[in-house]
Amino acid sequence: MSTTTEQPSPTFDFSETPRVSFSQLVSVELRKTVDTSAGKWLVSAVLALTAAVIVLYFAIADDDQLVFEEFLGFAASPQGFLLPVLGVLLVTSEWSQRTAIVTFALAPSRTKVIGAKIVAALLMAFLAFAGAIAVAAVATAAAGRNDGFSDVTVATFVLFLGLQLLNVLQGVAYGLILLNTPAAIVAFFVLPTASSIVFTSVSSLSDLAPWLDITTAQSPLVNGDFSLTGEQLGQIGVTALIWIVLPFVAGWFRVMRAEIK
């Protein structure tokens, strides 16, 4: 309209406006993981399964296996496959539930929002891990063996935690690249398994397996063997690059450019 030149439009004054801080976004994302039916289900499932797994382990394990490391491995296994689903949902539900429209209208910086989601996912994983440690410690004490804690080292914690964090990041990465809940969850569970079937059944590939197949590379950790060689650490790093970092970067760029529908 011709009035633009006649009447300069008033300008916003930001001097009194509090900024949306990153930590605020992180706490909002944490809130969003547990304030929906799906989120509550997932968290209750992790808690219930952890309890069930520990009880089961007490029932079936030999007496000399009732030590902290073994308990920790079992206590952390339900979250090992459920937390990545939480990581997936953190990203994909914005698209499948179309809340992205609202989220990005209130916080237009996509870098900050996705960053907050990643930090929130990692915090959840950290929290769950701390919970698993507590459960394992109680179970070990309850088992009452003298040597229950004797093999515990700092490396045990660090590597185990690292594994959990990588797992959740993998979920986030697949969420970012697919932006679709079922597709990302299927990709998370099926692709690594398919790869590991290929690498174990084709004998000519078996030398390459630890370098390319994430399941093979991580198998020492999953089996509770925390004294890794440099080569094994390298293999974990390389497979993480292929299976987690690359999809993550591709997904990141996808989300930064995507039209928010």
């Binding site: 406006t17 539930q97 179309r98 809340t99 429209i101 910086s109």
Partner: peptide, 22 residues
């Protein structure tokens, strides 16, 4: 993009059903 805390200055309603059903 340059508006500080845009929700405090611009109220937006593009699609009322674009909220988490749960």
């Amino acid at each position: 993009h340059d508006i500080v805390n845009p929700g405090r200055h611009v109220g937006v309603l593009l699609d009322a059903s674009a909220q988490h059903a749960g």
